[in-house]
């Protein structure tokens, strides 16, 4: 009865490169053309067929505001307990400065919804997984709170809940002893909405620096922008192919 999924690339397959689905080609030392079949996750009845949801963030437009962070945490009932070291953080603003020129810019970083999520690779229970439409989630029913995924994530995107919580929101269950991160507002997507709380807030109260859309649809706004102006992944060297892309870095 249980429909538990296993990550599409097992740790052993990853290490040995034995996965039949992965045909990798070394172009030069350290440069790989990695072709993995994202089709290894079959479409599921509840997700849009063939979709891969993603966000494009234009750091040229992103300014000194915090609208996305506030909106995300309000949408998902993430509250601060005034303990910055352990407070959950689904999205945060990061400021980067070029030491040579002193030029600095600020951009939001959240779960990057990788095509090959390291969190799912290391998860001992299969609680971290990637949905058919590319959203990386934690199944908190199976999460045992070991926090391997937090160590594995190169983006520091995940948080652990240390204390009992109350007054959670019906669409965003969260609780002590489990790991959580940005869900790409999966409750909205499953309702048929095509935007997330952060993107909506950025458009309304911020600088309109974020675009949400289907990366697999060449006619979507996000794909057209990416085709025209390009977009980079943070830590592209890891070959994780994240669904969150940045411009102007």
């Amino acid at each position: 009865m249980s429909d538990e999924r296993t990550p599409n690339l097992s740790r052993r397959q990853f290490i040995t490169g034995a996965a039949a689905a992965v045909a990798s080609l070394t172009v030069a030392p350290g440069v790989f053309l990695l072709k993995t079949s994202s089709a290894s996750i079959p479409d599921s009845p509840g997700t849009k067929p063939g979709a891969r949801w993603g966000i494009l963030i234009d750091s040229n437009k992103c300014g000194d505001c915090n609208a996305c962070v506030t909106a995300c945490h309000e949408e998902n009932g993430v509250k601060s307990l005034n303990r910055p070291r352990t407070d959950a953080q689904w999205i945060r603003k990061v400021e980067i400065t070029d030491r040579a020129t002193g030029h600095s810019r600020s951009l939001p970083v959240m779960c990057q919804h990788c095509e090959h999520p390291p969190c799912a690779d290391v998860c001992p229970t299969g609680a971290s997984f990637r949905r058919a439409d590319g959203i990386v989630l934690v199944n908190k029913h199976t999460c045992i709170g070991c926090r391997y995924c937090m160590m594995a994530c190169p983006y520091k995107a995940r948080s652990f809940i240390h204390e009992p919580l109350e007054d959670q929101l019906p669409h965003a269950p969260r609780g002590k002893g489990t790991v959580e991160s940005c869900t790409l507002c999966v409750h909205r997507i499953d309702r048929g909405e095509r935007t997330t709380a952060c993107v909506e807030a950025c458009r309304k109260d911020g600088n309109g620096a974020m675009v949400f859309g289907n990366l697999n649809d060449p006619d979507s706004e996000i794909s057209r922008r990416l085709a025209q102006y390009g977009g980079v992944a943070i830590r592209a060297d890891l070959g994780l192919n994240p669904g969150v892309r940045y411009q102007g870095l």
Partner: peptide, 13 residues
């Protein structure tokens, strides 16, 4: 129990 697996993993609500 059946519902939770389908909702979380498959997005069937």
């Amino acid at each position: 129990k059946a519902e939770k697996d389908r909702a979380v993993n498959l997005g069937v609500r």
